[in-house]
Structure formats: C-alpha cells, structure tokens
C-alpha cells in the first residue's frame, strides 16, 4: 500500500517530505532502539517510534525506510525535521500510542502469520 493511502486512512500528520509519499510500504517495525532497527527493519518499512532525535533520520535514510511515525503526539526536534526534509524522509505524527498505531497498520497491511 502506498504511504499516502496509509497516511489518509490512519489520519497521520505529515511533517516532512510531502512529495515522497508515493513509496510502497510493505511492512512496519516498532522499536525505540536504533541498533535494533538497524539490525531488523527491511527496506520499504514504516518505522513506528517515540524517538524524536535526528539520528532517527540517519537510520531511516541508511535503511531506506519508507518513513517514520512518531507516536503519542511527540514533536520532533527542529534538527530532526530539517534533516528529514533534506534527506527526503517522510516524518509523520499521530496522537495514538505505539500499540494502537501498530495494530491498525498491521490490519491495514493485511499482514497475517
């Protein structure tokens, strides 16, 4: 499913990289540990996290993730937002917590074991 469609269906706010919302999203990964995401997230994945630091963008870029969803209404730091814009990484926010947004995305993407 395209990131744009996910964003609309889950009512996510788009903070950066508005013109990079056509990426195909295959899966999502929920984690607040950067090395865990480095190790386990696949390309084309949406990353769900509460981390707002700019190193999130470095990881997202390096792993070629589809985008980052910040949960619990967290606001990114200004450097994070700037870096995301520069590196064309869509940064999205939601008022929901990680459990709820992960569950909704799981259902939306039709991921079954």
């Amino acid at each position: 499913m395209k990131l744009r469609e996910i964003q609309k269906k889950l009512n996510l706010n788009v903070l950066t990289a508005q013109d990079h919302m056509e990426t195909e999203v295959h899966s999502a990964y929920t984690s607040d540990l950067l090395s865990d995401v480095m190790a386990h997230a696949q390309g084309g994945t949406l990353w769900i996290t509460l981390q707002t630091h700019q190193n999130v963008i470095a990881v997202a870029k390096l792993k070629e993730l589809a985008g980052v969803i910040l949960v619990n209404n967290r606001e990114p730091e200004e450097e994070t937002r700037n870096k995301a814009e520069e590196e064309n990484v869509p940064l999205l926010t939601t008022s929901e917590n990680a459990f709820h947004i992960s569950g909704k995305l799981y259902r939306l993407l039709g991921i079954e074991k």
Binding site: D32, L33, L34, S35, D36, M38, A39
Partner: peptide, 15 residues
C-alpha cells in the same frame, strides 16, 4: 534516551 545502548552495535558488525 536517544535510542542508543541496545548493546547490539558490535554484534551487528560481527553478524
């Protein structure tokens, strides 16, 4: 707090 310190960096390099 910034998301570092999983203790996975060196194992990630090795793997």
């Amino acid at each position: 707090e910034m998301g570092f310190g999983a203790g996975m960096g060196l194992p990630n390099i090795k793997r």
